[in-house]
């Protein structure tokens, strides 16, 4: 198969509708190794409205994290954006294509325009520096503030993320804090330069449920107070139900469905989304009137290898609705004003 040609870095970005802050258009991201290429993200399109939360949900290997790292241009030496664009509306209103920015331009965008928080706060923080230094570094880089001003702003930020005793905790090292507190530090670091877009990649997955509830509350409150848009990456449909306005479901590197959150849960229009929802235990559904347990309905088989994708619909080998035409490429189509599905039988589901 012929790879898409390397994209030009000078092309003018396409237009972006007024209320949209981030839009991926046919994004493809590859990891190129000596002998083979992993097409981790293929022809991905989604839109995020200003001030709203778009959840990208998918299982291991779905490409959801690579999608967010593509927007941040943090793909490492082997990763490359092979096609498509990621349009972003800056705070001053200008639209840039993140896929075509230089690394120097990206350094101005990261932190100030777009910030990211990750799953594992311990590995994302430097163990050798105090949390005050690490949060303050952002201000030093982006705003060139003097030390007393930095200290004041960091304390303000620690208070905002509800870290008790901010003036004392400033001089703590990451290992002196619990997982929940470290995630608050990560959030403080991400938000101190007041970005317009927060990308949260499984921010609560490593946390206990009571701490997860605290962090989700915190993110929601800060989103409101700071008027941020949020791209929320998760594998957990429960978290999706709590945080998302819109949902994009990813499978094997592709977006298979995008819709408002209520439609995704009430009227899923892709067999993978249906299968995912049926796999989650739910006692109201899984016990009959006499109290007997019904069997769960898992998705049979496993996700195809990135190196051996089926030629047509990637879900077809596991899909109960598959028919011969599913062996040809299937595109994400609009099936209702706000509902997109990558399934030729979406109308029958």
């Amino acid at each position: 198969m012929v790879d898409a040609p390397a994209i030009s870095r000078t092309e003018a970005p396409a237009a972006l509708a007024k209320d949209i802050v981030l839009e991926a258009q046919n994004l493809s991201t590859h990891f190129v190794y000596k002998t083979r290429t992993a097409k981790a993200v293929r022809d991905v399109s989604f839109t995020l409205q200003k001030g709203r939360t778009l959840a990208i949900v998918g299982e291991s290997g779905s490409g959801k994290s690579v999608t967010s790292l593509s927007a941040m241009r943090l793909l490492g030496p082997t990763g490359e954006i092979a096609g498509g664009s990621i349009l972003y509306r800056k705070r001053d209103g200008t639209v840039v294509d993140l896929a075509r920015q230089s690394q120097a331009a990206m350094r101005q965008i990261r932190g100030r325009e777009i910030s990211m928080i990750f799953q594992e706060p311990m590995t994302s923080l430097n163990p050798l520096f105090t949390i005050g230094d690490q949060i303050g570094e952002m201000l030093l880089l982006h705003e060139r503030l003097a030390a007393p001003d930095i200290r004041r702003r960091v304390i303000e930020m620690l208070n905002l993320v509800e870290i008790p005793g901010a003036e004392r905790r400033l001089d703590d090292y990451p290992h002196q804090m619990s997982g929940g507190m470290r995630q608050r530090v990560m959030i403080a670091m991400a938000l101190i330069c007041r970005p317009a877009l927060l990308i949260a990649d499984e921010p609560t997955t490593a946390l206990d449920v009571t701490i997860q509830a605290q962090i989700l509350d915190l993110i929601r409150r800060l989103q409101r107070e700071l008027a941020m848009s949020v791209l929320f990456i998760t594998h957990d449909m429960g978290v999706v139900a709590e945080v998302a306005d819109e949902v994009a479901v990813m499978y094997a590197g592709e977006v298979v469905e995008q819709a408002p959150v209520r439609d995704i849960f009430a009227h899923p229009r892709h067999p993978y989304t249906l299968g995912l929802l049926a796999s989650i235990p739910n006692v109201r559904r899984d016990f009959d009137a006499a109290g007997a347990r019904r069997r769960l309905v898992p998705i049979p088989g496993t996700v195809p290898s990135l190196y051996a994708m089926p030629p047509g619909c990637a879900f077809a080998p596991r899909c109960p609705y598959a028919v011969p035409p599913c062996g040809s490429p299937v595109h994400l189509e609009r099936i209702a004003p706000k509902h997109l599905s990558r399934c030729i039988r979406a109308g029958e589901l």
Binding site: T210, Q212, A213, G238, A241, E242, R262, F265
Partner: peptide, 16 residues
């Protein structure tokens, strides 16, 4: 605190 996969679930959450 446990998230429920239902956007319409009534949440009477007591965040610890």
């Amino acid at each position: 605190a446990a998230p429920v996969a239902d956007p319409d679930a009534v949440r009477n959450r007591q965040v610890l």
